[in-house]
Design a binder for these strands. Structure first.
Length: 217
DNA sequence: AAACACGTCAACCGCTTGCTG
DNA sequence: CCAGCAAGCGGTTGACGTGTT
């Protein structure tokens, strides 16, 4: 007998409005947390992780849906330059937006846009769905010795200076390999030539730095 | 009108981290 | 210190909608 058959069947796929209602009502009544029991006690035939994701990404109050504003686009681009694919950190700076939404938006809109000038030179064959980028690393240089907690499973013990998509971001006039952008002695980086610096507000900048600093300590 | 190609995004999966006993 | 579990994160997949031929 297959052990899987002993497990309660877990429903997958898109959530239906009635399932949303059940989950929302349950969490409003009992609060977040302990997602395994949420899925059981609410009567939803969903896994705990699925419930958590649905709540976090769609049902939670104050979730902002719909098109990204120009400000938000701009912020995503700049934060991505600072933080790399740290979607949760980036989303944390965009009120009402979720990491999943930011990630999707980057992959479908901004990432494509950034590499557009390249694809146009490659001919019509490249009209096909753009390749998902390989796992990308934050562009900051790091000391590998004090960074092993950071990897978050990305098996990136080796220090990555330049993330793959950065090769597609010539439009930003950005080159991490330029010596002045890197502090030689530690994990932080410095944008002397950051073209968007006048726009980047100090709060955001300090917050971004703080995030990186926390990770490297 | 039908078939196909492509774009978008919700959801899942694998993995790591953090907490608890 | 260690094991087990829940939560969180980022990458990837696949369904669906829309545009094009």
């Amino acid at each position: 007998m297959d052990i899987k058959e002993l497990k309660p069947r877990v429903k997958k796929g898109l959530w239906k409005p009635d399932e949303d209602m059940i989950l929302k009502n349950y969490i409003e009544a009992h609060g977040e947390g302990n997602w395994a029991s949420v899925s059981q006690k609410s009567g939803l035939m969903r896994g705990g992780r699925s419930c958590r994701l649905r709540w976090k990404n769609y049902l939670r109050p104050n979730i902002k849906r719909g098109r990204m504003s120009d400000d938000e686009k701009d912020l995503i681009i700049r934060l991505h330059k600072l933080l790399g694919n740290r979607w949760s950190l980036i989303a944390g700076r965009l009120p009402g937006r979720t990491d999943n939404e930011v990630k999707n938006y980057w992959n479908t809109h901004l990432n494509k846009k950034n590499s557009q000038h390249k694809t146009t030179t490659l001919g019509p064959k490249n009209k096909k769905k753009p390749q998902q980028l390989p796992t990308t690393q934050p562009i900051c240089s790091r000391n590998s010795e004090n960074d092993n907690q950071e990897s978050h499973g990305r098996k990136d013990e080796d220090i990555t200076i330049k993330s793959p998509q950065m090769e597609d971001t010539e439009s930003f006039n950005f080159d991490i390999e330029e010596p002045s952008l890197l502090l030689s002695h530690n994990s932080l980086f410095f944008y002397e030539d950051e073209p968007f610096m006048p726009i980047l507000d100090s709060f955001l900048f300090s917050e971004a730095f703080r995030s990186i600093g926390e990770e490297t300590t």
